[in-house]
Design a protein around this nucleic acid. Structure first.
Lengths: 184, 184
DNA sequence: CCGCGATGTGTACGGGTGTACACATCGATG
DNA sequence: CATCGATGTGTACACCCGTACACATCGCGG
């Protein structure tokens, strides 16, 4: 494999793309904007990423990896056996209130799959990763439902600008999981 | 109030905007595209809607009204007292599989609130309307949870291109509602 | 009936965009 | 060291965009 003059050029472009989307939204994503943010000439962006969809996919994939690496490392949901409903409630509440710009960025990339066919497989990966993660605590059906409810809660909060009531969230998560000691 | 030469000009522009977003996505929404779709000169769009956000808000508001008018007229969720979980499962399954383009359009406008501050109040109305509707069957907390889960399920299906398992959906909705005859 | 504001129309300008392409430069390979 | 493909660079083109603005046209109030 031939080495590049700037072996990290591609990576820097992805980082720049994420920065651009974070600041100006997907609508502001352009070869030129990324080139400027990465401090490289225009031709370099078009060389490494022929279309904007390529950039979008690379950016979402990187967010995806970063997110689940963090979740894995920091055990964002506590150890298996912990109170999953409470952990999920904490997670959505913090996602929405603590680092809102980042959540908006991640969701914007994720939701781009609605219109951009090319992004769909990566969005599917995200969904599957989240479900797989939750399967450590519960069965697959419940895991998928928890993932969906998490998305719904975060999005409604982000879209309306409201905060999340952590206790209310915990209660609802618990209902899906099923209260321990009862047979429903 | 002074009557217009074309009293329905504004309305036709909104319809055209919805058509444009449906065909080309929000990224393809422009004064020119709307003018062409409505068969009016460019200046007319800018006169009635100075900014694109104005158009976006008007379009979403119209979708919002149309949606809840339909829900109200056709009793999309069945009469109060019906099996709400089953009705919701049917609803999400049909939303995703029957008229997918329309669902994509509605969600694209709705999700625009992530980036467009101006759209946020209308998105909030949508959330509130959905919750208020569900309050006919259940308490407010459960209603909000059902609305969030509905969004999450539809979105995950639309984003990944997958279908919804109606029976699985019913089961999960039922858990949030709480099964009748049992005390959980 | 006349004037004025609301509504409608056409055009032009400056700026941003994707894309293409010719050229420069490097690393590996023979 | 000659060569060739991969990588990097600069520029130019055609296109679409929001915006502004001058002008036309209509309806209503005085």
């Amino acid at each position: 494999m031939a080495r590049r003059y700037d072996p990290e050029r591609r990576q820097r472009l992805i980082d720049a793309a994420i920065r651009v989307v974070g600041e100006r939204g997907i609508a502001g994503l352009s070869h030129r904007a990324v080139a400027a943010a990465a401090d490289v000439p225009l031709g370099s962006t078009t060389y490494h990423f022929a279309t904007l969809d390529d950039l979008l996919v690379a950016a979402l994939r990187q967010c995806n990896e970063a997110f689940f690496r963090e979740v894995g490392e920091r055990a964002l949901l506590g150890a298996p056996g912990a109170d999953l409903a409470a952990e999920l409630a904490r997670f959505v509440e913090e996602t929405v209130s603590r680092d809102r710009p980042r959540a908006q960025l991640e969701y914007e990339l994720y939701l781009a799959a609605l219109r951009h066919e090319a992004v769909r497989p990566v969005a599917a990966e995200w969904v599957d990763n989240m479900a797989a993660l939750l399967t450590r605590w519960t069965d697959p059906v419940t895991a998928r439902a928890l993932a969906a409810l998490t998305d719904g809660m975060c999005l409604q909060a982000l879209l309306t600008g409201r905060d999340i009531d952590r206790e209310e969230a915990r209660e609802v998560f618990a209902r899906i999981i099923g209260k321990p000691g009862r047979d429903c």
